[in-house]
Structures are given as structure tokens and as C-alpha cells.
């Protein structure tokens, strides 16, 4: 048998993802990138002028100097119809608590579904997956009734409690743990002297860190951006930041500069997270795509 040295494919036969991109590709991609960023940039432009600039013709395209002023106006709750400070604080509290809870409970339940034996495991898992297909709006009305009974209307627990667990989180963790924790590793730990809780602590927890991070990021982002339910159950007196921004925009006189300053501030924390952890977020989404 002859042995041919392996020749790296060249030219037409080189896999697409290794081929150098042409100018056309870069141009179109640049178009997409600009299109993606522009609206955000635009909001910054508007936020950094005073309201009269909005009506300018031709429209202003470069940032102005009023940003700081607009921000102080935003937080001066005397001038504005909502307290933006408390909105930011509320969102921070809600997002943090929900993220911690979702990640923790999802790992717990995901571990059980992935690696433990118990009656009804299959049926329960199918129920969970099925509910992922159900729209949020379906349960909204009874949930509101529940909140009335619990006296939680217009209070933070109303937006925290229903979100403490998600079917998506359990599903994600289960899939990940099935793949990332080999069964004989669990067997080995049992022989070494671990009962189930120790298996969880010593074997599962160290292994799920990447997935937990992705789930945490996604949950934080989604909770921060949540609008429909907070709109229903909270009022402008005790809002999350999304509700607050929408309240800003509901006045009779449209102060666009103020409104878009509000949107800009509301985006900032997530933007910061994205700048720092963007690579992980991208990786998480892409890995999930292949496994799903």
C-alpha cells in the first residue's frame, strides 16, 4: 500500500470557511454591521441634543453636547413623570435575583433529569419541553389574579416570583449535563464515597460552569428587557426600567431627547455586559444552535 502525504485542499477545493473573504463580502458585511449599529448610534445622537434638534432639517447626524444635561433631567424626578433611579434599581434587583435563582434551580433540576433515576422522569421532562412552546401571554390573566390575592400588585415580588424558574433553563442544563458529565464519572464518585448531594457538588457543579455562565447571561438580558408582564403588574410608581422608559414616552408632549436618553441609559448596562462578555454570549448561542 502506498502512502500519499496528505495534501491540504487548495483553491476551489478549500473549505469555504478557510478561504479569505473577498472585498464584496467585507462590503456587504460592513453594510450589515452599520445597519445594526446605526439605530443605537442615532439614539445617542438624539439623546445628546435638546429636543429642538429633533425637528431640524436636514436631520442632525452627529452627537451634540447635551447628553449630560439630558441625563440629569432624566433623573430629576420632579421634572419627569417617573423616578428613573428607582427604575434602574428595581431592574437591577429583579434581574440579579431572577438570574441567580434560575441558574441555581435549573442546575438542580437539570441534574436530576439528566443523571438521576426516578419515577415519572420522562413524563415530567416532556411536560417541561411542551410548555416551552406556549406563549407567555396565555397565563397572564390568572397570574394577575394570583398577584391580586397575594397583594403583590405593583410590588417587585410580582415580577420576580413567576420568573424564578424557566423551562428553557432546565432544558438547557439537562442537555448540557447529559453531554458533559459522563456516567462513569458519577459511578467513580459513588465508589469513592459520594452520595447524591456530593456527586452534585464535586462532579456536576464544576462541570457546568460554561453552561451556567451562558444561561446566566441570557437570563439576565431577558429579565432586564422584559416588558409585557412588568407593564401589566407594575405601575409607573414602582417600575422596572423598561416600564419607566415607556412611561417617559407616554406624555402628551413628546420630548424625544429625553425619551431616547432614557432608552440609552436603559441599554447601557446590557451594553457593558455585552462588551465584556460578548464573546461568551456569541459562543453560547452558537453552541446551543448545534446541540439543539
Amino acid at each position: 500500500m502506498s502512502t500519499l502525504a496528505y495534501r491540504r485542499p487548495r483553491g476551489r477545493f478549500l473549505a469555504r470557511r478557510f478561504r479569505r473573504a473577498g472585498i464584496g463580502t467585507y462590503l456587504v458585511l460592513l453594510l450589515f454591521a452599520v445597519g445594526s449599529i446605526f439605530p443605537l448610534y442615532w439614539s445617542l445622537v438624539v439623546a445628546s441634543h435638546d429636543n429642538s434638534a429633533v425637528a431640524a432639517y436636514p436631520p442632525v447626524l452627529t452627537p451634540g453636547h447635551e447628553l449630560w444635561h439630558n441625563i440629569t433631567r432624566l433623573f430629576n424626578s420632579g421634572e419627569v413623570n417617573v423616578s428613573f433611579w428607582s427604575a434602574l434599581l428595581n431592574s437591577a434587583i429583579v434581574a440579579t435575583v431572577v438570574t441567580a435563582a434560575v441558574v441555581f434551580f435549573s442546575i438542580l433540576a437539570g441534574f436530576a433529569f439528566a443523571k438521576l433515576q426516578f419515577r415519572g422522569r420522562r413524563a415530567l421532562m416532556l411536560t417541561i419541553v411542551a410548555t416551552m412552546l406556549v406563549p407567555v401571554q396565555l397565563g397572564v390573566i390568572p397570574l394577575y389574579i394570583e398577584m391580586i390575592h397575594l397583594h403583590w400588585v405593583n410590588r417587585l415580588p410580582a415580577v420576580i416570583a413567576p420568573n424564578l424558574v424557566t423551562a428553557f433553563g432546565v432544558f438547557l442544563m439537562r442537555q448540557y449535563i447529559v453531554a458533559a458529565v459522563p456516567n462513569d464519572l458519577i459511578d467513580a464518585s459513588r465508589v469513592d464515597g459520594c452520595h447524591t448531594a456530593r456527586v452534585f457538588w464535586h462532579v456536576v457543579l464544576p462541570a457546568v460552569r460554561p453552561a451556567a455562565a451562558v444561561l446566566g447571561l441570557l437570563t439576565f438580558m431577558n429579565t432586564w428587557n422584559d416588558f409585557f408582564w412588568p407593564l401589566i403588574v407594575l405601575s409607573p410608581r414602582n417600575p422596572t426600567v423598561q416600564v419607566a422608559v415607556s412611561t417617559l414616552a407616554s406624555g402628551y408632549v413628546q420630548d424625544y431627547a429625553l425619551v431616547l436618553t432614557g432608552t440609552f441609559i436603559s441599554i447601557l448596562p446590557l451594553l457593558a455586559v455585552f462588551l465584556v462578555l460578548g464573546k461568551q454570549i456569541i459562543g453560547g448561542i452558537m453552541q446551543g444552535a448545534v446541540k439543539g
Binding site: P182, D184, L185, D187, A188, S189, R190, V191, D192, G193, C194, H195, H202, V203, P206, A207
Partner: peptide, 20 residues
């Protein structure tokens, strides 16, 4: 009796070492 109390030790086909 749980595995840990049987005074046995096991060697696995895929080694089953704790990765971290």
C-alpha cells in the same frame, strides 16, 4: 450497601478521572 461502604475500588474503561 452503598458502593462506598463495600471496601472495593474500581477502574473504569474510560478512566473516569475528575477533570477539574
Amino acid at each position: 450497601v452503598p458502593p462506598m461502604d463495600r471496601n472495593i475500588a474500581m477502574v473504569f474503561q474510560n478512566y473516569a478521572l475528575y477533570p477539574h
